[in-house]
Design a protein around this nucleic acid. Structure first.
Lengths: 189, 189
DNA sequence: GGATTACGTCCATTATAGTAGACAGTCAAT
DNA sequence: ATTGACTGTCTACTATAATGGACGTAATCC
């Protein structure tokens, strides 16, 4: 029997227990819903095992939250408010690419992510990265070229794009200004 | 040798490779920075292994992103464009209140509504209006007071609010400037 | 040409994740 | 009191994560 000391797993164990108990589920019920053994769930909650991404996917699926939300440490969100300063953000200093997690829904299966794509930059996304996802893109500022296969959509400020089946694709900003857009993701129950 | 089919791990493999390559790191360099073997990183990127939360913590640490951000699905793509000029909009000339239906999802159960609430104005919404609805509010510009029951949330630009159970509520702009916000609605299946 | 270095993947081994079933305890119904 | 259902944890086992070193390939240098 080993107690795992690392930060991520320690945080996860407390979080997982809290999520389960807040729903009033026993280990057995959670096991049924998630397809992960109750013994394993118990181990994770006691910090005795570190779950694989596969198991994380199953657990978060049963909880109807994203894996990202499950591991997010900004979720002590008391009344549902996510302050700008508390929203997780990531930037690539080299390119100026910026991504901000405005909302990772706890009560509702929704994520809102604000992205800044700098002038002249592009981002590619293989289909595998977003299978089983439902999402839309809304351009807040600037212009965006969306390439999907041999198809290109030109989106200007205010335009919105509802996405269909997953395909390899690329976002591109060919202009001299930054492009800022919102990605709204609905998680399937 | 097994190729893992689950969604979370598939997404992670593509994402991890992209993050590494965007930094121009070899597997060896990433291994040094993260303390995870290059063989394991290679396996994860090829979808041949599902990393534990412990390993995820190390990898994200080396990338200087949170685990949550690493697993966040913020990217996407494709057709179903709603042009700004084609989006249904309604305004009240008297008050300057403006409402635009950015997206009314056909493929996905999502609505995006952009609202401009003029200085000094308020809008009420009875609980009945959004029962069985899941929604969030994101302030794009200005400040918003959101009254829900006897609770008041003060939201500034960039702040986001995930709504809980339906209650009578009211949007209020007490400032001298317009407030612009997005209402994202996930429709129940 | 050969030697060196770096790359990603393969391989055998160790460590541990993950399971099904057993266990001890609790609680409600009879 | 007994019984049955449920709870979380323990146990022995299987499956696979994770490693260090080897390998084949490519690029560079002498």
């Amino acid at each position: 029997m080993t107690i795992i000391e690392d930060d991520t797993t320690a945080y996860l164990s407390a979080r997982l227990r809290r999520e389960r108990e807040s729903r009033g589920w026993s280990l057995g019920q959670f096991a049924e819903k998630s397809g992960v053994s109750k013994a394993m769930i118990s181990k994770i909650e006691r910090g005795e095992a570190s779950p694989t991404a596969t198991v994380l996917g199953r657990l978060s699926g049963a909880l109807s939250v994203t894996v990202s939300a499950l591991l997010s440490r900004t979720d002590a969100v008391h009344h549902g408010v996510r302050r700008y300063a508390q929203q997780p953000a990531w930037s690539d200093p080299e390119t100026g690419y910026d991504r901000r997690q405005v909302l990772s829904g706890q009560k509702i299966p929704l994520e809102l992510v604000e992205v800044t794509l700098p002038a002249g930059q592009k981002v590619t996304m293989p289909a595998a990265a977003y299978s089983f996802i439902q999402q839309a893109i809304w351009v807040l500022e600037g212009s965006l070229l969306f390439h999907q296969g041999d198809r290109v959509h030109h989106l200007d400020t205010g335009d919105c794009l509802e996405l269909g089946p997953p395909q390899d694709c690329m976002f591109e900003n060919k202009t001299a200004e930054n492009c800022r857009y919102l990605v709204a993701v609905v998680r399937s129950a």
